[in-house]
């Protein structure tokens, strides 16, 4: 079972990892100690691998710091579900293989509720209800499967996406 960590709108990267806790200031090995260290201090002590963040719009706004999503990967966050993501955070998360789903479940779920994340369907199941999650494009799924963009690039010698002129899905940005 995953625990749901509920957040509001506009969670900025300074809340996720303040700049003074960057690996540059501390060390990469310590990164897992710092997610939400000031915004929500109980997070880093109570979070468990496989937990899911459910947040309001514009999650990850602000800085381009990849160590913000990297810190969430370090503690084992399985997915982040929000109605929208800030664009650099979206790219950084994708590049790290961190699953993001564009959906608004903030009113459907409560904080620290237990849930099951079904990455295949994909869906989130909580209090007997199944909440469908949007299916990402194939190239996003392939990137996830390789553990991120660098894993994909190393295996295939190219970027995962196919250049397109067709309308693209909302979360392929």
């Amino acid at each position: 079972m995953a625990s749901i960590w509920l957040f509001g709108p506009n969670v900025d990267t300074d809340q996720i990892v303040p700049g003074r806790y960057a690996p540059y200031m501390t060390s990469e090995a310590e990164l897992g100690k710092y997610p939400f260290i000031e915004a929500r201090p109980e997070f880093r002590t109570q979070v468990r691998a496989g937990d899911v963040i459910v947040a309001g719009p514009n999650f990850g706004c602000g800085s381009s710091r990849e160590y913000a999503p990297r810190a969430l990967v370090a503690v084992g966050i399985a997915a982040i579900i929000a109605p929208s993501f800030a664009r650099i955070f979206y790219r950084n998360a994708l590049n790290l293989g961190l699953r993001l789903f564009v959906a608004d479940l903030t009113l459907a779920l409560s904080d620290r509720e237990q849930a099951v994340l079904d990455l295949e369907t994909p869906a989130l199941i909580a209090h007997g209800e199944t909440f469908a999650l949007p299916k990402p494009p194939d190239w996003v799924r392939q990137t996830w499967a390789e553990g991120g963009i660098i894993g994909y690039y190393r295996r295939h010698g190219q970027l995962p996406l196919v250049e397109s002129t067709a309308p693209t899905q909302e979360n392929s940005r």
Binding site: E66, P69, I88, N92, N95, G148, I149, Y153, L159, S172
Partner: peptide, 18 residues
């Protein structure tokens, strides 16, 4: 961009954009 996008751009000379 973040770290991995920068590293890939430096390795390949290219990036992807929507």
């Amino acid at each position: 961009v973040g770290t991995r996008d920068m590293a890939l751009a430096l390795a390949s000379g290219r990036t992807w954009l929507r």
